[in-house]
Design a protein around this nucleic acid. Structure first.
Length: 92
DNA sequence: GCGATGACTCAAG
DNA sequence: CCTTGAGCCATCG
């Protein structure tokens, strides 16, 4: 295999993005869960750091919340995050 | 390559 | 209930 169809995750961010991108609507994952799926059960912080520095409109990062159930943070405003979560979680 | 920072988590006071 | 401490990891300057 000379090269994979998908570019290899040069950084942990790419891996996190791949996981977060698979989150279905109405579902929420905790940072530790995403970190675990990304291959780093202890990378909860790394996940937050990645999402914060590499936010992407294609990534439903608003579905990634803390274990406590708190929204954690959102580059676009935590209020918007809660809004989207409520909308998707309620409708679906 | 190192130091600083942070959208984390757990435990204890 | 809220604050603090310690642990772990990745990105950025």
């Amino acid at each position: 295999m000379a090269r994979r169809a998908f570019t290899e995750p040069a950084t942990f961010c790419e891996r996190v993005f791949a996981v977060v991108r698979t989150i279905p609507s109405g579902s929420t994952l905790s940072y530790s869960e995403v970190a675990r799926l990304a291959g780093n059960p202890r990378g909860a912080r790394a996940v937050g750091a990645v999402l914060r520095t590499n936010y992407d409109p294609e990534i439903p990062c608003h579905r990634v919340i803390r274990k406590d159930g708190s929204p954690g943070g959102y580059n676009r405003g935590v209020t918007l995050k809660k809004r989207r979560l409520a909308c998707e979680a309620t409708e679906k």
